[in-house]
């Protein structure tokens, strides 16, 4: 467009265009929620009003009970994720380095991956009790297999030119692992970690909800058991669980876009956006 260009005005209107619609949608949903509950389309025994839920959320945010629960959930999440990642990196790199080992183990790994981790929950509860260790074990077991597959995938997909170059240059052992193997497998591992971080959060909530370990999941169930007077608090906790998901996934998405900005699907998406502008 020809004419005087005022970048400041443009930025403001652009920001408005981008930020306003999502905000309006959220406000609209909250308003509908309030209307439906105040007019008793949903009774109080099913659904608390939006305002009472927000009040409960406000109270919860300043109470130590919520933060202890969030801390317990996060502790299980991070420890479980670290154990699973370290094991998957070691086992995955070893298996991927030998075609025979990889082929022999592939079917077994897939079977273990398809076992829903919750299946072993009852025996884990029996052996470890409703403890943090139980939660950590469940998370590690659940996310280890998909991570392992991503590591194997990443290591196997190494560019043959890179592999041959490393061979000719005599890069071996730990150095080869750090300088050649890891960088080329990094995009796969980053994607695996992001998926695993969601899986780990789901399993943490399951361990708390079904297994009774301390954490946000247990608090949600306790609030539900407290009857309809506690429902506002229950929804407040659910909202907190959702925000936990946003923060944790956002973190790993950031890492991932960093590591795989060159990947084809990302480039296509970017160029499509540009041409759509």
């Amino acid at each position: 467009m020809i004419g005087p260009y005022n970048s400041e005005v443009d930025d403001v209107s652009f920001a408005l265009k981008r930020v306003l619609p999502p905000v309006l949608v959220i406000v609209f949903i909250l308003a509908i929620w309030q209307v439906l509950t105040v007019t008793k389309v949903f009774s109080e025994t099913q659904f608390p009003t939006m305002t009472s839920t927000m009040a409960a959320l406000g109270n919860a945010l300043v109470s130590p009970i919520l933060w202890q629960a969030v801390g317990a959930t996060l502790e299980g999440w991070i420890v479980g994720l670290i154990i699973a990642s370290v094991l998957a990196l070691i086992v995955g790199s070893l298996l991927a380095s030998s075609t025979l080992a990889f082929r022999a183990s592939a079917a077994t790994i897939e079977v273990f991956k398809s076992i829903p981790a919750v299946a072993i929950l009852p025996i884990v509860i029996l052996v470890l009790g409703s403890t943090m260790n139980m939660k950590i074990f469940l998370i590690s077991f659940g996310v280890f297999w998909p991570l392992l597959i991503q590591v194997i995938y990443g290591v196997r997909s190494m560019d043959p030119t890179v592999r041959d170059t490393a061979k000719i240059l005599g890069v071996r052992g730990v150095r080869r692992f750090l300088v050649v193997t890891m960088p080329s497998a990094a995009p796969y591992i980053a994607t695996g970690l992001r998926i695993a971080s969601i899986g780990a959060l789901i399993l943490a909530v399951v361990a708390e909800l079904v297994g009774g370990a301390a954490g946000i999941g247990r608090n949600i169930l306790i609030a539900e058991n407290g009857g309809s007077a506690q429902y506002a608090l229950m929804y407040a906790y659910i909202i907190v669980a959702g925000f936990l998901g946003i923060i944790l996934t956002g973190l790993f998405t950031l890492i991932e876009t960093r590591v795989m900005h060159w990947h084809e699907s990302q480039r296509n998406a970017r160029s499509n956006e540009e041409s759509a502008k």
């Binding site: 999502p22 099913q46 399951v206 999941g217 539900e224 229950m234 959702g242 936990l244 998901g245």
Partner: peptide, 28 residues
């Protein structure tokens, strides 16, 4: 336009650990 407007809500529902909704669904 709808996608952009609803994307935070959709994203919230995606990352919300679904088991957390179980008690709420029991209530409903």
């Amino acid at each position: 336009a709808v996608r952009r407007a609803t994307s935070p809500v959709v994203y919230f529902l995606y990352v919300l650990p679904a088991p957390a909704l179980l008690p709420a669904l029991i209530a409903i």
